[in-house]
Amino acid sequence: MEIFDFYRKDRWPHVFCPGCGNGTVMNCFYRAFSELDLPLERTAFVGGIGCSSRIPLYISSDALHTTHGRAIAFATGLRLSKPDLKVVVFTGDGDLGAIGGNHFINGCRRNVDMTVICINNNIYGMTGGQASITTPHDFLSTTTPFGNKEYPFDLAELAVAAGANYVARWTTRHVHELTKSIKTALQKKGFAFVEVISQCPTNFGRRNKMADPTQMLEWFKESSVRRDKVRTAAVDHFDLNMAGQITIGEFVDRNRECYEELIGVEKHG
């Protein structure tokens, strides 16, 4: 499929700022999707509220742009009522991990067949740069003008613990690995979760001495450590900051029976 057939050209220009990581993730997703030769008209895209949650509206297929935090709950209903549809959720750190945290962990646990891609830019970008649940410790935002005193969530480890069938984390610096993981996630039966650490130069980088998106990509490159080669003890993995590291890689790849199989809904067609 040609890239311009994949997107809704009539919806452009898009809302993303120059240097935003969303374009990179969209490109990787398109590449994975078209290399697998999946039918676009049999795929529905679901988003919550936020920058990354706008992506479904730019893809040339059925799109459900929902309320803040509830994308996985909407996607669960859609998928179970129409099991012949592939369901892909685009979400962000605030949408998925803060307001939608309960739906996220229960989605992993329920293991309904869907691919969830979380673009984690460590900030509330659309509302102008407030601290999120993944803002690293001591970093600046408009709501943490003296440094963030909280510690960030590790969304990927959370998904592993909650029972997702596939979990991977990459950054926008790791486009090949990311594309490969999205491919695996799209083929995976059950709940597949791909977290992408992404740059928001406008609202995160600018306040943290990385106003140039390339500086952020450099930061990703330098702090990324493969999960099997992490520098600190497992207990410190969550400490995603400059002094620490960004744990990347495939976290889990397993084949628990998905919910559709367990309740026999796939036969409905």
Partner: peptide, 21 residues
């Protein structure tokens, strides 16, 4: 399909998703 969700927000969100199916 009968589904027990994690809270009422999830319930109504799921039925809206299902309705679009």
């Amino acid at each position: 399909v009968f589904l027990q969700m994690e809270d009422e927000i999830a319930c109504i969100s799921a039925i809206i998703g299902a309705s679009w199916g």
